[in-house]
Design a protein around this nucleic acid. Structure first.
Lengths: 236, 236
DNA sequence: CTAAAAAGCGAGCGAACGTTCGCTTTTTTC
DNA sequence: GAAAAAAGCGAACGTTCGCTCGCTTTTTAG
């Protein structure tokens, strides 16, 4: 599996994201026709991530967003109830979408080493395909309301539990060498996050997501691998 | 070296930080007597990190800061020129202080394995001792002006170059067998950052900084180690 | 083609922001 | 203890914020 193939197969377009956004927030959006609403939501979604990821969501004014999206203030507010809801809308929709894709992607692999490799690779590829959202989601989580903030934390912990579960299984089967599953999962998560949080760094060094994935997988399996070896990666 | 000992020896009190802050921004601070200025700067420093790390610097109003610090709006502005300068003041002072401490701390160790372990451990211990500042520095860097933003990036890259340099040296001496020093340094940095960015996670699981340091060092050396072994840690 | 419905618009509203300044209180000096 | 200096104060200022609403333009329906 390479990133090019992942992107082709996963096919998560902005249009899909915005269709999901419209469906889950239908009441707050005044625009009647789905086609019109989605087209403009795409511009709003793009502009929000572009401006926010540069200066922060709190620092982005609705006038900034109006300019960046090409919509007037009035038209903007026909597509969202408030600035606060815009944040919640983008976060919750992205969360729902990403967790669905992740769940589907590595369920089929069986041997622990291959499963761990597939999980790491899929996380990295997905975060690459939706990098602006991942960055936004991480940096702006603390501006959410208490309830949504809790959901964001839960979502993050669920990811770690996936890694930890695979490692625990590998330990039990003797494929891994009894590394601490929780701590190992935590540092895997840290390495994955660094990819989308510090993209400029890796871009400058011309490191592709494929190469980064290879490196993280090698490092992880190097630490986990038991005597009967788990260094080879399954096809996913 | 344990964290308890590090904290005793390094002795970086808020008073030291604020004395440095006053000295480097003397012109912008209207208060004449050093003792008074430092005492109040400590309250401002504490309050800024406390409120900012919860809701973000941009979302923190000067009235929030007045309330949290116990100083009136007028008194506040006798200790800083503007909100923007307050951000720059905290960031640049912390940067100067931390880089000075880091430089001194592992220069003495010689063998590559011990040196890498000491570097990782010191970074973790320092980030633990000044956790609020490290978190603040990471999250609010993008609100800095262009010039200061550049300095913050440089400071981060310098840290990574320290790790990469030690690994390269270890490769040359045959202690390490690491094909990619730059990527390894990057993921070490990522693991260190996760400690102060996700403290709540580790606190909830009751993982001490000492245990986390042991884990990161073991994982790193496990990946790097060459034939003549570098798993043992020097006393530092 | 026309009338109704939908979408788009931007000046203007009250609230809240960062910052100031004339005044009071506290501390220092002689 | 009186005069001078320093520190502390908070109402008020101009600006900018999120958001609204009456109006115009575009699209749809008959």
């Amino acid at each position: 599996m390479s990133f090019a193939r992942f992107k082709r197969e996963a096919a998560i377009s902005r249009q899909d994201i915005c269709r999901e956004m419209l469906a889950s927030h239908r009441a707050a959006i005044k625009i009647q026709k789905e086609e019109v609403a989605i087209r403009n939501l795409e511009r709003i979604y793009d502009a929000t991530l572009r401006v926010s990821n540069q200066k922060g969501f709190q620092a982005m004014t609705m006038r900034d967003l109006s300019r960046a999206s090409g919509l007037s203030m009035g038209a903007l507010y026909d597509h969202l109830a408030s600035k606060e809801e815009l944040l919640e809308m983008i976060q919750s929709t992205g969360r729902r979408l990403t967790s669905r894709i992740l769940k589907e992607s590595y369920a089929s692999v069986e041997d622990p080493g291959g499963k761990l490799a597939a999980a790491i690779r899929t996380h990295l590829y997905l975060s690459e395909a939706m990098q602006p959202w991942f960055f936004f989601s991480y940096m702006e989580a603390r501006h959410l309301g208490d309830k949504e903030k809790q959901l964001a934390k839960q979502s993050e912990q669920r990811t770690e539990r996936v890694f930890a579960g695979i490692i625990r299984q590998g330990n039990k089967q003797g494929a891994f060498n009894e590394a601490d599953p929780n701590l190992t999962a935590a540092v895997i998560k840290a390495m994955v996050q660094d990819w989308y949080l510090k993209r400029w760094k890796y871009a400058k060094r011309r490191i592709s997501v494929d190469r980064y994935a290879d490196f993280v997988i090698k490092a992880t399996l190097g630490c986990c691998a038991g005597i009967n070896g788990a260094g080879k990666e399954a096809g996913a």
